[in-house]
Amino acid sequence: MSNDGQRFDRLPATDDERELESRATLEEVVGWWDERFGIGSEEFEEHTFWEKGAGKIWIAYGEHPSPTEIEGLGMKFLRTRQEHWKPTTNAVQRFGRVAKKNVIDLDPERAMAFVRGKDQEVEWDGDWGYLIAAHEIAGEREPLGVGLYLHGELRSVVPKGRRRED
């Protein structure tokens, strides 16, 4: 068995069910969101998790046969290839509202710079690594996307096509 860029393989539930050494398990993926952002597994109860291509994890509603050879299944959720796992902008926008930690709140000016893809110096004494950047809109906090915090700097990792250009 190997990773195949052409098909979706369902993540094994736990280590015991793992057939492919490099593949993350459901337990690890859901556990990571909880540990990193305080987003509990109950948020994902109705969803299943899939790998297509090495380390690219997708989230989909409901059950599907595994493996499945189609073009897309739900949305890209997390990258587990590198040492530091990286959530996608779209997943953070969709699921990040209930995050309880590692959320950095940006004022209007910084929020605008962030979504234009600008890196900026910020005050932050929480964890280093991938954070959820958020701002306030229509009276509530709303996630903007993923930022990488290192050495006093917040790097915007909003993908090109998702940035604001105005």
């Binding site: 989909a60 189609i70 073009e71 897309g72 739900g74 949305m75 996608t88 779209n90 969709r94 096509g161």
Partner: peptide, 17 residues
């Protein structure tokens, strides 16, 4: 289509060609 569906946060969409 895939770009739009992900931007809109859809998880119940499967894409076939």
């Amino acid at each position: 289509l895939r770009f739009n569906a992900e931007r809109l946060g859809l998880t119940d969409v499967a894409v076939t060609r």
